[in-house]
Amino acid sequence: MLKIKDLHASVEGKGILKGINLEVNAGEVHAIMGPNGSGKSTLASVIAGNETYEVTKGDIFLNGENIEDLSPEERAHNGVFLSFQYPVEIPGVSVTNFMKTAINESRKSRGLDDMPAKDMLKLIREKSELLEIDRKFLSRSLNEGFSGGEKKRNEIFQMAMLEPKLAILDETDSGLDIDALRIVANGVNKLKNKDNAIVIITHYQRLLEYIVPDFVHVLHNGKIVKSGTKDLALELEEKGYDWIKQEAAV
């Protein structure tokens, strides 16, 4: 589904990703771990098409297609979803109206008419129940005044609504208390199926207790320096990142 080959990216001339290789197949859950500043969030942003970052070398393929020239919205239409580490507050646009716009724009790109209002309401009801979201919450302005946990839950609600093929969850566990973490993880697990793939970007192993990854990769200094199974995450939890850094330095 996702194939990244020798990806280099920089921001304002400063190299951040320095040759990433990664392959994610349908039905898989991958975790990308690593110390602060290793390039985890940059990788997520670059896959989603954030133009702040410049891809200087390498390719990203989605279902065999090179997506280099696709805008963020076109990538979204092709099934890419990024759950933001810091979701942006947009006063004046309600969660519901935002989702309606997003879904209908995506349908438009596939040559479909707007989703009938009745179906939209049903979908919203269904997905908000999945994430235990109060109906009142949906009429509030997008992310405005939301707690950290509410913002993250709202991100996963959007994922549930848009049903992406490739979901990248950037530090979705940060700012969540244990109950919210369980709700979010439960939601993600219910959305997981054999046709989609999930990439979890996280600093800690905590979320991986709930969403069990098939593969764990460690990112350090813009490169994947180690890959393994979920046991690698446990090892990192126990020993920290220093041994990885030392190993990488050798």
């Binding site: 989603a48 963020p72 919205e73 933001f84 879904i103």
Partner: peptide, 12 residues
């Protein structure tokens, strides 16, 4: 904010 909206499939 613009990127956030675009990443949800809303054209620029």
């Amino acid at each position: 904010a613009l990127f956030y909206l675009q990443s949800r499939g809303i054209p620029k």
